[in-house]
Amino acid sequence: MNNRNETRYFQVALTTLDENVLARELRPLKEIRDSYPKYLLTMDTFNKDANYDGIQKKNILDWLLEKD
């Protein structure tokens, strides 16, 4: 929950450039059957803003610097 009492889900991985790692990290978020936002945070700079069926991938440094 954030400071506005909104639910969000996060999965964190160093990198997901390997397809097997990406699949492993997305799996728990895909199993969640509600409509709250889901994020995959990584240190990746390549393909850092990808979207996987509603799961938003973000570079963790960019995410930390975002204004909420």
Rank of each mutant, 00 (worst) to 15 (best):
R24C: 13
N47V: 06
A50Y: 12
E66A: 09
Q56G: 04
L61Y: 08
W63A: 03
I55Q: 02
L40T: 00
K67Y: 12
A23K: 14
L64C: 11
R4T: 15
Q11T: 01
E19A: 12
D53S: 13
E66H: 08
D53M: 11
Q56W: 04
G54H: 02
G54S: 06
T16Q: 05
D34M: 02
E31S: 15
E6H: 14
R27D: 10
L17Y: 08
G54M: 06
Y39S: 03
G54T: 05
T7I: 10
Q11R: 02
A50F: 09
V12D: 07
T42S: 03
P37A: 08
E25D: 01
T42G: 02
R4M: 12
L26K: 08
I60N: 00
N3G: 11
F10E: 00
N20G: 07
N5T: 13
K30I: 08
D49P: 04
T45N: 10
D44H: 05
R4V: 10
N5E: 15
D68F: 14
E6M: 10
I60R: 02
P28W: 06
K58P: 01
L65F: 05
G54Y: 02
L29E: 00
D34E: 03
E31C: 15
P28K: 05
E19K: 13
L22N: 01
D68V: 14
D44C: 06
N47R: 10
K58H: 12
G54K: 05
D53I: 10
A23Y: 14
F10K: 02
K57Q: 15
L61M: 10
N2L: 07
D62S: 06
N2V: 07
Y39R: 01
Q11E: 07
N3E: 14
L65P: 00
K48T: 08
R4N: 15
L40Q: 00
D49A: 11
R27H: 12
D34Y: 05
G54C: 05
A23S: 11
E31H: 15
N5F: 12
L64E: 11
N20H: 12
T42K: 03
R24P: 08
A13D: 05
D68I: 15
K58W: 07
L14M: 12
D49K: 12
L41D: 00
F46Q: 14
N2T: 05
K30A: 11
Y36Q: 13
V21R: 08
Y39N: 01
L17C: 09
Y39M: 02
D44L: 03
R8E: 11
E31Y: 14
I60C: 00
T16E: 03
K38E: 04
E25H: 02
Q11A: 04
D49T: 11
L26G: 03
K67R: 13
T45L: 09
N3M: 14
D62C: 06
R27T: 12
N5V: 14
M43I: 11
E25K: 04
N2P: 03
E6L: 05
W63M: 01
D62A: 04
